[in-house]
């Protein structure tokens, strides 16, 4: 692995039967870089993310990822029979469990829920626990698959601030899959568009979110929206074109 890149994918191909989902795809993510991945529903974003997580086979092409990876799925996937702190410390060495879980829960603002049962948490709280569980192991690569898709708009804004703060503190490389163009622009250093199984276009957004009045912000937004469907023949995908988050399945 090159020291500068956390992720190097080249020529990745993935098909389900005759349906080619990823087609000779190339992608690199630098250390500590925050990349957002947008694309049509069914375009293969989850397939790519699962491949990076090690959850899908690599039939063709090569994928280099760090050994320490964490995933936050669209649903929190907490074990309901384990207390919140035990969920966070899942898979850690026994001696470090309690302290590290407490520290991670403090970071996401849930220290006083450490002893709670997951079923008593709200949706946003549960997703913060999932975030704490992902970060507690100090991953070099953090994979987020529409982690805020099921949350209400207000909670999502809080989560954005939290994720940005946590990224600044821990500096993992991040791949965030999202339906929401504004979310992508706000959080990421770079937004990439997945279309027809390949990375179609990328937009550097590192400085843009600092100042939304910067005309380049609107340009980037308009460009992404058009890539996602407005000028496309598939105008049916209006939810994406509007820049709204679509609650996935």
């Amino acid at each position: 692995m090159t020291p500068m890149n956390a992720v190097t994918v080249s020529g990745l191909r993935r098909a389900f039967g005759s349906h080619v989902v990823l087609d000779r795809l190339d992608l690199t993510i630098a250390d500590s870089e925050f990349v957002a991945l947008v694309g049509r529903s069914g375009g293969g974003k989850t397939t790519l993310l699962r491949t990076l997580a090690g959850l899908g086979p690599v039939a063709e092409g090569s994928v280099e990822v760090p050994a320490l990876r964490s995933v936050v799925f669209q649903e929190p996937r907490l074990l309901p029979w384990r207390r919140v702190w035990q969920n966070v410390s899942l898979g850690l060495p026994r001696s470090r469990r309690r302290d590290e879980a407490t520290r991670a829960l403090t970071e996401v603002g849930l220290a006083d829920h450490a002893q709670a049962w997951p079923l008593t948490l709200s949706g946003g709280e549960a997703q913060r626990v999932a975030l704490a569980r992902a970060l507690v192991r100090e991953p070099e690569l953090l994979l987020l698959d529409e982690p805020f898709g099921a949350l209400d708009a207000l909670t999502r804004i809080h989560m954005h601030a939290l994720v940005r703060q946590l990224h600044e503190r821990h500096r993992p490389a991040v791949l965030l899959v999202t339906h929401d163009v504004d979310e992508a622009l706000e959080l990421a250093d770079r937004v990439i568009v997945l279309r027809d199984g390949r990375l179609d276009e990328q937009i550097e957004t590192r400085e843009l979110f600092e100042d939304r009045r910067d005309p380049r912000f609107e340009q980037a937004r308009a460009r992404l929206l058009s890539l996602l469907g407005v000028t496309d023949t598939h105008v049916t995908d209006t939810s994406v074109a509007d820049g709204q988050a679509v609650g996935g399945p």
């Binding site: 997580a53 959850l55 649903e75 996937r77």
Partner: peptide, 10 residues
């Protein structure tokens, strides 16, 4: 999905 999560977390 919980099984997959467990495997994912080592």
């Amino acid at each position: 999905r919980l099984l997959e999560m467990g495997r994912q977390f080592g």
